[in-house]
Design a protein around this nucleic acid. Sequence first.
DNA 1: CTTGACAAGTCAACACTGTTTACTTATACC
DNA 2: GGTATAAGTAAACAGTGTTGACTTGTCAAG
Lengths: 195, 195
Amino acid sequence: MNRPDAAEECAERTRVRDREATRQRILDSARELFTTEGYERVSSRLIAARAGVNVALINRYFGAKRGLLAEVIAEEAVFPGMFDGDPGTLPRRLAEYMVDQVLREPSPLRRALEQSRADPDLQAVYQERLRDAILEPMARHIGGPDARARASVAVGVVLGLGVLRRVEGATALRDSDRAALVARLESVFVDCLRE
Amino acid sequence: MNRPDAAEECAERTRVRDREATRQRILDSARELFTTEGYERVSSRLIAARAGVNVALINRYFGAKRGLLAEVIAEEAVFPGMFDGDPGTLPRRLAEYMVDQVLREPSPLRRALEQSRADPDLQAVYQERLRDAILEPMARHIGGPDARARASVAVGVVLGLGVLRRVEGATALRDSDRAALVARLESVFVDCLRE
DNA sequence: CTTGACAAGTCAACACTGTTTACTTATACC
DNA sequence: GGTATAAGTAAACAGTGTTGACTTGTCAAG
């Protein structure tokens, strides 16, 4: 049916049986769909169809649909380069990062991932990511006493503004003066992080 | 089968056909299950079974499952009495509220509802609730220029600490000194809200 | 070159979800 | 007392994630 001629299948020969290539196809399809549609809106069958593979391969290669999301999350960078510079300028850099994330549309993947936090099975994935990629690096970066507690408050602000932007749109913040908002957030982060 | 005798059914007579009572039974069952299990973990059929009614009645009375959650959310108070007192003491009261919400286990319903934010169809419900029950009251309460923007930042902090507590457990914050944490958050909220 | 083993890929089913439609039945009013 | 109307029911629909048995391509050893 879909193979009208055995000789014609050379046109399909670009896709030989290749575990790694197939895995990557699925992963690419998932990332694209999660990005544009969000985790819960995308079905396994759609991901598989878009990747041109069989549905069962998702579970074969990733255990389950959530394994796909876990992998997509794992390969996404958070706060790129934020914890490298001078710790004294971290509040300012955080403030600018937040404003530029709040004011402009957030990255589609970030948006999709934030929409996918409810899946109970994903809780562990998010927890690990939050701790290892954000909380701990920030705590190490600022140093001093109670570094983790101080970092936690700052991270709380970051997360909260993200939620506000997603749920309510953060319209009031997007309409306000950028410099004033950066200054306000900077002093907020200073309070969060000071010893 | 479940009616072995027509005369015996008088034992079941406590439940006559009563629209309002049935509606309430479903609502109670849903609130209890959403509270203990979370929205997505609870199926319509389970809610109906627990309420002792037919599944189809959920859609008859609430349109859809999400209508049930919307109603549960609507009847739940948020920030009780927070926007009544002196606006000058709002940062302190917010800080204490957050610490006592972060340190102790949050109300099960609040926890369940926070876990249910991913459902795309619920977005509008949460948005309306956030604006009408939190953002606008707080903006009115603090007054002054850019009240909505200032309130938005404070609400962002509130939301973020909730997310942090739910995802990561906010262990570092729960282990830190209560008075110090209240003081830190108070100054954070002062920064958020000051003109 | 042929054969066999193993991995890659497929298919159909399972158990579940929320929702709808057509149906039955109890209640209250004329 | 009969009947319209609402309350309640049963069964199906279309969809989900997931699984196990199956087929088939690939590659190495005989």
